[in-house]
Design a protein around this nucleic acid. Structure first.
Length: 350
DNA sequence: TATCTCTGACCACTTACCTCA
DNA sequence: TTTGAGGTAAGTGGTCAGAGA
């Protein structure tokens, strides 16, 4: 029996997986194969799972004795998009006008504000006739009131926001004084939250959406674009971690199963050696798998089987066991993914 | 129609900065 | 106060698809 794992692009060798819905994006592809290399006449005849075969009908396949070497394949594909929540379009609590817009006049250059004259950064900020920007622009300038202190963070989130914005503003001012150009900025919680909500809506942006978001958040379009890129990268990274964890468990389970079946096989061989005539009983009484207690429906006599090989009935049961456990465990799971084992945690998107 | 060039979007990788324990 | 780790904004280079010449 062989256990193979491969990480990379989604495998093409196993056509029976319907993953049409999942292949829209190129992502993590995973292929796990469990090959039972015991079906040959001789013990040494082994075979890897990588052989391309027609995996047309898994269900009927497991009934057949001839398919005892069919690999049990796990195909881990990118998760379906995170369930989307309705976008609270302009409905955020922090969007309330606190009536302090007057006091919001910028004091120098705020790193979290779209700098005047920088609007044409990458050209996207030039308003177009069909732009939806102006209809729902947020006013982040309310956070620029003075007098906020960082230590208020715990007691009063709003005040903490003030402090945050003030710090950013102050830093920027200092740098402006020093003639330095700030290379990196930190988005405010509100900006991040809004971007996060947008990301839930759609994890990619068309130019119009990018422009709208940029205007709304007083950021440069490039910043919005970068944020989405980084956010996608983070999502993917988390998903990869989750997948790896899951695969580790799969591997452990299969290894254990492998060990158990090897042991079982040894026992049966010992039995055969000790009681040679035992194998001449009708095959139907011999193909019961000790682990799953399934009886194969073959009518082949043991003598006939022995003429070819004494092993296949056992291997047939083995393959069936693996296929059964896979089918059992994968029921009720997403179709575009193959989960023969307990489902991994899928909450990586956040 | 085929080919080439340009452009924009995206991704992977990396760097540099910021925050916090 | 210092420092290292982790998070993240941003830079860079490569690929790919679509538009236009």
């Amino acid at each position: 029996m062989e256990l193979g794992l491969s990480l990379g692009e989604a495998p093409k060798a196993f056509a029976f997986m319907d993953r049409s819905a999942a292949t829209g994006s190129k992502g993590l592809g995973f292929c796990m194969g469990l090959g039972v290399g015991l079906g040959r006449r001789e013990e040494g005849a082994e075979r890897g799972f990588g052989e391309e075969r027609d995996c047309g009908d898994e269900g009927t396949e497991r009934e057949g004795r001839g398919s005892v070497e069919r690999p049990v394949q796990l195909d881990l594909l990118p998760l379906a998009p995170v369930p989307r929540q309705p976008h609270p379009q302009m409905g955020f609590a922090w969007q309330v006008d606190h009536g302090n817009s007057e006091a919001s006049t910028t004091r120098g250059f705020d790193v979290n504000q779209l700098p005047l004259g920088d609007e044409i950064d990458d050209g996207a900020a030039i308003s177009s006739p069909n732009s939806t920007v102006s209809s729902f622009q947020m006013d982040f300038s309310i956070y620029k009131r003075g007098g906020a202190a960082a230590h208020r963070k715990d007691s009063d989130p709003a005040a903490a926001n003030d402090a945050e914005m003030e710090r950013a503003s102050s830093r920027a001012s200092d740098e402006e004084e020093n003639g330095l150009t700030r290379k990196k900025l930190r988005l405010s919680k509100e900006q991040s939250a809004f971007l996060e909500e947008s990301f839930k809506e759609h994890n990619t942006l068309n130019p119009k959406q990018k422009l709208a978001l940029a205007k709304q958040l007083n950021l440069r379009p490039r910043q919005v674009e970068v944020w989405f890129q980084n956010r996608r990268a983070r999502t993917k990274l988390k998903q990869t971690e989750v997948d790896c964890e899951y695969l580790k468990r799969c591997c452990e389970t299969l290894t254990e199963e492998n060990r158990r079946l090897q042991k079982e096989l040894q026992e049966l061989r010992a039995l055969k050696t000790a009681h040679p005539f035992y194998m001449q009983l009708p095959a139907t009484t011999l193909t019961m798998c000790p682990s799953c207690e399934r009886v194969a429906t073959t009518t082949t006599t043991a003598a006939a089987a022995a003429a070819t090989t004494a092993v296949p009935p056992v291997v047939g049961a083995v393959a069936q066991t693996a296929a059964d456990s896979a089918a059992k465990a994968s029921s009720g799971l997403p179709k575009n993914r193959f989960y023969p084992f307990p489902q991994p945690h899928q909450s990586a998107a956040s």
